[in-house]
Design a protein around this nucleic acid. Structure first.
Lengths: 108, 108
DNA sequence: AGATTCAATCGTTGATCGACGATATACGTT
DNA sequence: AACGTATATCGTCGATCAACGATTGAATCT
């Protein structure tokens, strides 16, 4: 016997990996760049240091609303941040967060 | 004028970022670890060097079929590989592919 | 051969993504 | 105040994810 235990839940005992905050954070950051368009946006911002939303839209073969959605996802991950500049919004990478991603991946 | 051009497609000219193979590859790898369970699996395999599927299931609070799905995704990304060993399957990380991920992220 | 064990696959369900057009909002400019 | 430009948000649609239980497939052990 000994192995009945239908998986009711994670019992957190012994070996079982439970909710690992680091795993969740890394997954979140990885998720942010888990789409080609978002990778390109991030690289674009890194290369330019800062960029208007409109320029990003012009650089991608996607509708403005779609790009806006990707920017939102990137913002939620903390990888980029945007500050309002009059009627426009200027986006730039968040260096600390990017560094965090790099370190976590490197530490794999 | 100059800005009519309803987004028909990516015209690839001038600035436009077109299908960037590197972006797609990185997105694919990032996608593989864009879920906490998969991050944990990868770390588990790195730590252990090799691991039976059953052990992985025991380490996660997920059903066997769910874990199997995650393993499939990881396998498809190339991050891990599994070889059949009798009735069991032994999984391990693919060092080259992991290195590739690390380098691409580091190169961001 | 039959039974058991381990893992993959199937089929389902609810949730989320990715894309778009259309609409709304915010800010300058005239 | 009215207009135009620049972003964000809404609503929709099809596709995919994540999870599960149930079933199948393969290989070992009686």
């Amino acid at each position: 016997m000994a192995k009945k235990q239908s998986k009711k839940k994670c019992d957190t005992s012994s070996v079982k990996l439970k909710a690992d905050p680091m795993a969740e954070e890394l997954a979140k950051l990885a998720w942010a760049i888990a789409h080609p368009a978002r990778v390109q946006i991030v690289r674009l911002l890194i290369g330019r240091d800062a960029c208007m939303c409109g320029e990003i839209v012009d650089c991608l073969p996607l509708a403005q609303s779609t790009v806006s959605q990707h920017l939102k996802i990137l913002k939620e991950s903390g990888l980029i941040q945007g500050e309002v500049d009059g009627p426009k919004v200027c986006y730039c990478v968040n260096p600390e967060r990017l560094e965090q991603l790099k370190q976590w991946v490197a530490a794999l």
